[in-house]
Every structure is written in structure tokens, then in C-alpha cells.
Amino acid sequence: MSTANMIKANLDWANLGFQYRDTGWRYRAKLTDGVWHEEANPTKDMVISEGSQAINYGQQCFEGMKAYTTINGDVVVFRPDMNFARLNQSAARLLMDPIPEEIFMGGLQKLIDHNLAYVPPYGHGASLYIRPLYIGIGDNLGLKPASEYIFTIYCSPVGPYYKNGFKPISLMVSSYDRAAPHGTGNVKVGGNYAAGLIASREAKNAGFDDAIFLDAATRRYIDEAGTSNFFGITADGTLVTPASSSILESITRISLTEVALFLGMNVESRPVALEELGTFVEAGCCGTAAVVTPIGKITSGDRSWTFGDGINAGAQVKKLYDTLIDIQNGKEPAFARWLTKMG
């Protein structure tokens, strides 16, 4: 049924930041001896053994998803099938048991059903951020896969990831490496993000919005920003995204390349050298949290590259952003298949 007239939580929907809010209900299931058991109405706190592999050896992975209220009043989730597949790819990399589709999708539906009041109304620029989290637990000591696992999904209503919304950001090329070749850079595991915290702090302390990383092998090529994938747009309207085995396969980036083709742009996926930044007339970063965010400037040491006028979003980045938002809001029928109705 349509949720257009549902009573919503008493929040200032147009001015939400990107921070955690306890909605009071989350989904949780535990895998023990090969059998999944759902937990009834769990609290936000989890009690796990001090020997758990998640907290000793980092055996944990997660996803980021969003739910929206469309122009028709439906509650939809954007491409959850891809999140399900990517979470299991991450789990396989860490030797974690696969999550069954009925646990992931069934849990997601239950989460939405119990949190409809927190799905922002249409037209406020906000969304319900959804975090599936998978961790290894149990009384372990040695370095080996966990004996038990917990899968949980929680959510929080959020506004834009960057506080200034759809405004160009500035990035500083970090001297730290995000991920090594043949490591875990292409899967969504917590250690990748913990390792990048110091780079992000240094960038912000220097007056930038975030860090951007180069490849660890040669330090010649763009990998990705601290929270999102990079893309550049050339003067002839070609969308260029870096190709690297250590870059996370961003669902937003994959979607954005399809949107670009839909808009008549050319698309290339290839290594992008730092020295090539000067050939891009516009640039941006993209991800579930950041959606599409224009980049105004990238700085590496005493060199800087400015995109557009550095102050306003370029026309092509804005068109990509507007089209993706229209898709997520149910206003672009050509991509209706990307939306899974859940309320």
C-alpha cells in the first residue's frame, strides 16, 4: 500500500545531518552450528565474547543501502540485490559463511516494515540509511574463521553526507595507502575504513573535506576517496572511472555509468594517472552515502587541480546527480527495475 499518508517521526526532515539515530527496531539473526536463528526485537547493544574474531582479527563486513519515499508514496530500496551479492563477496573473502537470500531480503523487509515512520517523506532530500553488518563471534583465540556469526541490519534517517550538501568539495592526496594490491580493497570490510581514518583527519586538519588515495604499488594512479569512488569528465563529455583491483565495486558508480550512457555520454573504465587530472573539466565522487558529490579541487603537495570554477557544481555532474535522484525518487521509468518496493 502507499505510505504517503503515514504518520512520520517528528524530525526536521529537510535539515538532517549524516549521523546515527536509534529508530528502536533492527533485524538480527545468529548462525550457530550451521543453522540460522532470528532474534526477536533485539536492542541496539550486542553482547559478544571477548574472543570474537570480529574484534580481535577484523572478521567482519558490511553494506550501505538507502530507502526512499517515491513521488507516488511508495517506500523503495535502491538495488538491494547488488548489496546482497556484494556482502557475500566480502564474506567469502574473509572465509565467512554465506548469508542466505531469505535472511538478507527477509530481514530487510522486516526492518522496513518496523521503521516506516523513519523513511523520510518525499521531497526533503533525505533518505533512510540502512546498514547490514556481518560479524564473526564466539570463544576463539587462534587466527581462524569464527565458530559463530551474527548478521544484523539497522537503519537511521539521514541527510547529505557532506554538511554543505550538493556543493563542490576539496580533496587532499594522502601520503598513506588505502589498500594493497591483492588485498581487501575491493571488498567492503571495516579494516579498510579504519586504516583511512588518519588520512581523513590529516586532510580535514589541513582545511580539506577529505582525503583521496593513490594506488599503493606505484603511487601514480587515483584509487578512490576516503568514502567514495572518483570519476572525471573530459571536455568531450566522457565519464572516466578508475580501474583497479583494489577499488571497491561501488554500486552507485556502476549505476552512474549506466546513467551516463542513458544521457548520451561516453564511458571509460581505466587507470587514471594523477597527472591526468588536468584533462578533466569536471570531477566528482560517488557512493551510497555521498550519492554524487562534485569535486572543486584536488591538491597534492604544492600542486592543485581545479574542476570548473571550483565553486559551483559543473553542468554534467549536476545532470548525473539529478538523474540519479530522479531514479531513486521513482521519477524515471526507464530505471524502475532498480527500485524494490517494500512499503
Score class of each variant (00 low, 15 high):
Ser147Pro: 03
Ser269Arg: 10
Thr340Ile: 04
Arg303Thr: 15
Glu148Met: 12
Ala206His: 01
Ile222Pro: 00
Thr241Arg: 07
Thr152Glu: 05
Asn164His: 01
Ile298Lys: 03
Ser300Thr: 14
Phe78Met: 07
Glu39Phe: 07
Phe18Tyr: 03
Gly330Trp: 04
Ser304Asp: 04
Leu197Lys: 13
Asp139Gln: 12
Glu276Thr: 11
Gly191Gln: 08
Ala243Pro: 11
Tyr221Cys: 14
Glu249Tyr: 07
Thr293Lys: 07
Ser147Asp: 14
Gly196Thr: 09
Lys331Val: 04
Leu143Thr: 12
Tyr321Glu: 11
Pro80Asp: 02
Glu101Cys: 02
Ala91Leu: 06
Leu197Thr: 15
Asp12Pro: 02
Asn115Ile: 11
Thr32Gln: 09
Pro121Met: 01
Glu275Ser: 15
Trp305Ser: 03
Ala14Glu: 01
Ser250His: 05
Ala206Val: 14
Ser228Leu: 05
Phe213Asp: 02
Met96His: 12
Val76Gly: 00
Gly34Cys: 05
Ile71Trp: 03
Tyr161Phe: 13
Thr299His: 04
Ala273Asp: 10
Asn88Ser: 05
Tyr122His: 15
Glu332Gly: 13
Tyr161Ile: 09
Leu94Met: 13
Gly264Tyr: 02
Ile7Leu: 07
Arg28Asp: 01
Gly301Leu: 04
Ala260Arg: 08
Phe213Trp: 02
Ala85Phe: 07
Leu116Cys: 08
Leu274Gly: 01
Ala29Ser: 15
Leu111Gln: 04
Ala180Met: 09
Gln109Tyr: 05
Arg303Cys: 03
Gly142Phe: 00
Phe208Thr: 03
Ser147Ile: 07
Tyr134Pro: 04
Gly226Ser: 09
Gly237Asn: 13
Leu95Thr: 15
Gly106Trp: 07
Pro42Glu: 12
Leu324Gln: 12
Thr152Phe: 03
Glu249Thr: 15
Thr252Asp: 05
Asp210Lys: 14
Phe166Ala: 02
Asn186Phe: 10
Ala313Arg: 02
Lys341Gly: 08
Ser200His: 04
Ser245Cys: 10
Thr218Asn: 12
Asn88Thr: 02
Gly190Pro: 06
Ala67Thr: 09
Glu275Asp: 14
Gly136Leu: 03
Ala235Arg: 14
Pro100Ser: 09
Ile222His: 00
Ala235Pro: 13
Met1Arg: 15
Asp22Leu: 09
Lys331Asn: 13
Thr184Cys: 08
Tyr20Ile: 04
Asp309Met: 06
Asp322Thr: 11
Val158Met: 01
Phe262Lys: 14
Gly73Ala: 12
Glu63Asn: 01
Pro42Ile: 10
Phe213Gln: 00
Phe230Asn: 15
Ala195Leu: 10
Gln328Glu: 00
Lys319Gly: 09
His114Thr: 06
Pro333Asp: 15
Asn10Arg: 04
Thr306Gly: 00
Asp309Tyr: 08
Ser156Asp: 10
Phe84Pro: 11
